[in-house]
Write a protein that binds this DNA or RNA. Structure first.
Lengths: 155, 155
DNA sequence: ATGTGTGCAAATAATTTGCATTGAC
DNA sequence: GTCAATGCAAATTATTTGCACACAT
């Protein structure tokens, strides 16, 4: 069991072109077993229990490698800084995973409509924020499809 | 014209319980006239053209006041730090605008299905990230509806 | 006059980088 | 042996805070 997991990790690394290191393995294990949506600090704290000498920088570097390789994703795309929404009308966002530009899009164009007001578990819905992730025209031309990487994407 | 805009700003401030100051007015004007999804630095740069002595801290403070009052929104909720998505299955997020917790939700429960593969403008869709913004059960009990503020929400 | 708002500088948080050393292949 | 990975400390970026002074009400 533990052996097959280690094997699985070897394959994951091989596909991503990453060396199989102990720290990387433990970070991967932590990510696989942790509940919720851990922050780098949370991952660091958990890994540190098993490898007290681990550095936070190593955790960051590996998280980015995992994300860039499509092994894990980010919960939401970071734009580096806060962005203010100045468009008051109801709309969703078109988000280019290459150049990170944000464009507004009319919900009608997406064919999305359902807007529940209450969900199981007693969660009261205020509104839906929808990000359409993909590649904008400019980036398609700049980066041929064959070269297109799995984006460090939302979700 | 300019007068009615200033009047509108007065009303906005009155409703939010904010004093009408010159810096606040200019920040508001910039937000109303700027294209796209400006960062605090961008807003700062533009305001600085009109008020060279403005401080970045003032811009930040006012952006937060505007957002907390529901006058503007944020493009996406900041969790303070990056979050790793460890759930590999297709799902959306339930995001409490009070306590900021993230829970996964099955797309079926939302009744959302449409997933276009290409959009006008040549944008190639990879996937949809949907955040359902609202108040979780715990926060509803903690904060009676009457007290509920307009959340500093996504979009 | 009273209290909120502003500007400045320092503080904090999150993340990144440079570099010497270590370890994987 | 060679190059990628690690650890550490310093650097950066984004944002927040404390406080004295200025301004709105």
């Amino acid at each position: 069991m533990a052996h097959s997991e280690a094997n699985q990790f070897r394959k994951v690394c091989e596909q991503a072109g990453l060396a199989v290191t102990h720290q990387r393995q433990v970070i991967y294990d932590v990510l696989c077993s942790v509940e919720g949506h851990p922050s780098p600090e949370e991952v660091y704290a958990r890994v540190k229990r098993r490898i007290p000498s681990i550095s936070l920088a190593t955790v960051y570097k590996n998280l980015h490698l995992f994300i860039d390789s499509g092994i894990f994703k980010q919960v939401s795309l970071h734009h580096g800084s806060m962005r203010v929404e100045t468009n008051h009308s109801r709309h969703y966002h078109l988000l280019c995973t290459h150049c990170k530009t944000i464009h507004d899009i009319d919900p009608e164009l997406l064919g999305l409509s359902a807007t529940p007001t209450e969900l199981p578990g007693g969660f009261v819905v205020e509104r839906l924020a929808v990000d359409v992730l993909g590649i904008c025209k400019d980036c398609q031309q700049a980066t041929p499809v064959s070269v297109t990487r799995q984006p460090a994407a939302i979700q």
